[in-house]
């Protein structure tokens, strides 16, 4: 028996979210008294998983895994889970992990709980807390199955170091039949993505137009943050779709969310509620966002933001 995590990597590096999965998986493994195994694809450098509680890495390398194919990735994770009689498989909330999770659940005849925000409340039956209604509430779910899959919400457990002696085992890829081919991947390189960011800086209609977005980008650069926007901003084409956050956009679960010129409509707040600390900059003291925020500045974005950037730069240099 074992706990299995899928440790995602990109450009030869294990992604940060994988260390959160490892830490969470370690806690499960300790509670259940079984080992923690990580699956990696085309990843050479796996040592850091060992520093975060993983005892065994099953490293699957194959050219056919260079492009992400949900069915093929799911099949390979399923094979590892079956070979090791996994009791639980833990996946992240990345776009790819959410893509393959339901396929894996069918393949393993497993229960699947997405958006899990904490360690299980009990193991027999498995009882977990999940966010629902786009972060407006939680539910407690029972999963009474031989094997269960947990989709862990980002930043809900945290990263904990726990060095283990690591065994790395190489395994061949299991092929699948699929007519699905990746034709092209366009990625903004060197930019922090909303899904992985510790800090997200978001702009709303209060910024008046796309020509003013350098304010948001400069602030984000200063903080090493991802940029985001409200729905009308992407509807009007000021910013790309991928930056739209909220109930009908991307969810944000960062440690810090800074909203500039965003009113704080209920649909916007729903998507960003699970961010830990929220800061609002808005010139209207009555803006609803102030009710949902931890810190706020009532002021004109065009004055406050440049000022904030300068002060932050000075602070970082200290």
């Amino acid at each position: 028996m074992a706990i299995v995590i899928y440790a995602e990597s990109e450009n030869g590096k294990i992604k940060k979210i994988a260390f959160e999965l490892a830490s969470y998986g370690r806690a499960l493994a300790d509670k259940m008294g079984i080992p923690l195994i990580a699956v990696t694809f085309n990843q050479e450098e796996n040592d850091l998983l060992g520093s975060h509680g993983v005892e065994k890495v099953i490293k699957i390398s194959d050219e056919s895994l260079n492009d992400f194919n949900a069915k093929q990735y799911a099949k390979n994770i399923a094979t590892v889970a079956k070979d090791n009689q996994a009791k639980m498989v833990v996946l992240s909330a990345s776009a790819n992990a959410k893509y393959l999770a339901p396929i894996l659940a069918v393949g393993l005849s497993a229960g699947y709980a997405s958006n899990v925000v904490a360690l299980p409340e009990s193991f027999h039956p498995l009882r977990v807390k999940r966010s629902c209604f786009t972060n407006k509430a939680f539910n407690i779910s029972n999963l009474d199955n031989e094997v269960n899959i947990i989709g862990l919400s980002s930043n809900s457990y945290g990263i904990k170091e726990d060095p283990k002696s690591l065994e790395v085992i190489e395994k061949d890829s299991v092929p699948v039949n699929s007519t699905l081919k990746v034709e092209k991947v366009e990625k903004v390189t060197g930019k922090v993505t909303i899904a992985e960011a510790d800090i997200v800086v978001s702009g709303g209609r209060g910024l008046k137009g796309p020509e003013n977005w350098h304010l948001i980008e400069d602030l984000a650069d200063t903080l090493g943050a991802a940029t985001a926007c409200s729905k009308p901003v992407s509807d009007m084409g000021w910013r790309p779709h991928g930056e739209h956050v909220g109930q009908t956009g991307k969810p944000v679960a960062s440690n810090l969310y800074i909203a500039v010129g965003v009113s704080g409509a209920i649909q916007h707040l729903a998507g960003i509620n699970s961010s830990k600390v929220k800061v609002v900059i808005n010139n209207d003291p009555e803006a609803p966002f102030f009710k949902a925020a931890d810190y706020g500045i009532v002021g004109d974005a065009f004055e406050v933001v440049p000022n904030l950037i300068n002060k932050l730069k000075a602070f970082k240099e200290q």
């Binding site: 992400f68 990345s94 776009a95 790819n96 699905l180 081919k181 990746v182 034709e183 092209k184 991947v185 366009e186 990625k187 903004v188 930019k191 993505t193 909303i194 899904a195 992985e196 991928g242």
Partner: peptide
């Protein structure tokens, strides 16, 4: 996809 667009 996270940080971009994929065509398939």
């Amino acid at each position: 996809i996270d940080g971009g667009i994929e065509t398939v």
